[in-house]
Design a protein around this nucleic acid. Structure first.
Length: 416
RNA sequence: GGAGGGGUGGUCGAGUGGUUAAAGGCACCGGACUGUAAAUCCGGCGGGGUAACCCUACGUUGGUUCGAAUCCAACCCCCUCCA
């Protein structure tokens, strides 16, 4: 591997953040010489970001830590068009209201990882709707259309796969890459941004921006992509029983976030420690070398570090305490999801399946019944085998009832 | 505008009149084994009901039929070729 003179490139290479880079050596020289502004764009297709975006967020964090300036680009304008990259069929169009609401949710995430402000290395957030919404069609076509070759555009992965699979690709989506390229040019002009980063699936879009900058303004722009992170089993990261692993606490409690990392596969521990924590590499090497059951210690550290970044150390410690109580001592923890029931309801008795569903452990009464039949439901740690069992105040243990669906999903029931 | 092909559950994909809540794969959930891991094996996987059973679902809306995902009509959407 090349020796880098810039801290940023050296660190992100060592830690496994880099998939591809346009002109590594020139970029390294630039980063060594001056404060570089770099950006990553984010879709506004969901109300929060999930761990799939965390690699790129960590990348921005390292950028800032090594003395450069991160820009977070909200795709308020481009989300209205829809990025065809990595999708083999057309996405649904979102309403403007939904996009605005999603943007608000996403903004909150970044403040945990980056320092925003007006200083030279303070992060800034921009919204491409600010310039895209006001574009005039003819003027835009005349100014930038000549720089794009249809022949070339047709060879880009996002376009080619659609064509090969004979899936529909609308003209609207076909324009996406032009708009994203224009974003880069616009940011370069406005704020002197020199580097665009993103996921590996963004390579084509990023390269387009680099080329547009050179053709229009003779700018020397750079692109860098991070690899798509999958688990050692080959699955995309971030899936779980309850759905995506969101970074917003109101979408996913810190305890569940902590549990996600705690349950990392053995084979992923080292890689994840490098990507999702800021522990020194020699420490990670030591943790990674742990064998057998000892690797669980490494997973706890991973969970602690990642949760501390996302939700703060207090939340991480609370999650760890709860996990310890629940898994290592078979008890209950403060941080478990909790539902409250009326005392009157409990006096009258609540059917077990209904209570599991109310606690959010199952999606329907039928699912709860199947869970009970399959032997996966437990009440205060004891297996339930009777579907018809009623839960009453007599089941209260220390003023609460602990329900478990499987070994990893627990909830507390308290009386209102 | 014309011709042909297609739209099935979270997803991929069978299924051309009844025994089809709809094969199979994947994903996901539970159990066993473990280390809150992986792999493997077993079970589950639309909703409601203790149950008999009832409801909802195969692009949409109507129709034929005792009975339709399956046949017919109109409409919507996608693909390919032609103009």
């Amino acid at each position: 591997m090349t020796a880098f003179s810039s801290d940023f490139l050296r660190i992100v290479h060592e830690r496994g953040f880099v998939d591809a880079c346009t002109h590594t050596e020139e970029l390294d020289a630039l980063l060594s010489k001056e404060v570089v502004s770099a950006y990553i764009g984010y879709d506004c297709t969901a109300p929060s970001l999930h761990v799939g975006s965390l690699v790129s967020i960590m990348l921005l964090r390292w950028l800032q830590k090594t003395g450069h300036r991160p820009f977070v680009l909200m795709g308020g304008g481009t989300t209205r068009v829809g990025d065809p990259s990595g999708k083999d069929e057309a996405r649904k169009l979102l309403s403007d209201e939904a996009i605005a609401a999603n943007m608000t949710g996403i903004k909150g995430v970044f403040s945990k990882y980056l320092t925003f402000g007006d200083g030279p290395t303070d992060a800034r957030m921009v919204n491409n709707a600010d310039w895209l919404d006001g574009l005039g069609y003819i003027a835009f076509l005349r100014d930038y259309g000549p720089h794009f070759s249809i022949n070339r555009m047709l060879t880009f992965d996002s376009v080619r796969t659609r064509l090969e699979r004979e899936h529909h690709l609308s003209f609207l989506e076909f324009n996406y890459m032009i708009l994203q390229a224009y974003d880069f040019l616009e940011l370069a002009r406005r704020d002197g941004v020199r580097l665009q980063m993103g996921g590996a699936d963004q390579w084509g879009n990023i390269v387009n921006g680099v080329e547009l900058g050179r053709r229009c303004d003779g700018l020397s722009l750079f692109g860098l992509t991070v690899p798509l992170i999958t688990t050692a089993s080959g699955a995309k990261m971030g899936k779980s029983a309850q759905g995506a692993i969101w970074l917003n606490e109101d979408q996913l409690p810190a305890y569940d976030f902590w549990q996600f990392w705690r349950n990392t596969e053995d084979a992923d521990v080292g890689r994840f420690l490098r990507l999702f924590t800021e522990l020194p590499l020699d420490e990670i090497a030591r943790l990674e070398a742990l064998g057998g059951a000892e690797i669980n210690e490494a997973k706890k550290i991973l969970a602690h570090e990642a949760t501390t970044l996302a939700h703060g150390e207090a939340a991480a410690l609370a999650a760890a305490e709860t996990a310890k109580a629940v898994f290592e001592q078979g008890g209950v923890g403060e941080d478990l999801p909790t539902v409250t029931v009326d005392a009157a309801d409990l006096e009258a008795g609540i059917a077990v399946p209904a209570l599991f569903t109310r606690a959010g452990l199952t999606a329907s009464n039928g699912e709860a019944k199947r869970l009970i039949k399959g032997g996966g439901a437990r009440l205060n740690g004891a297996a339930i085998n009777d579907i018809n069992r009623m839960i009453t105040a007599a089941d209260l243990s220390g003023g609460e009832i602990k329900l478990s669906a499987g070994k990893k999903h627990h909830a507390l029931v308290k009386v209102a």
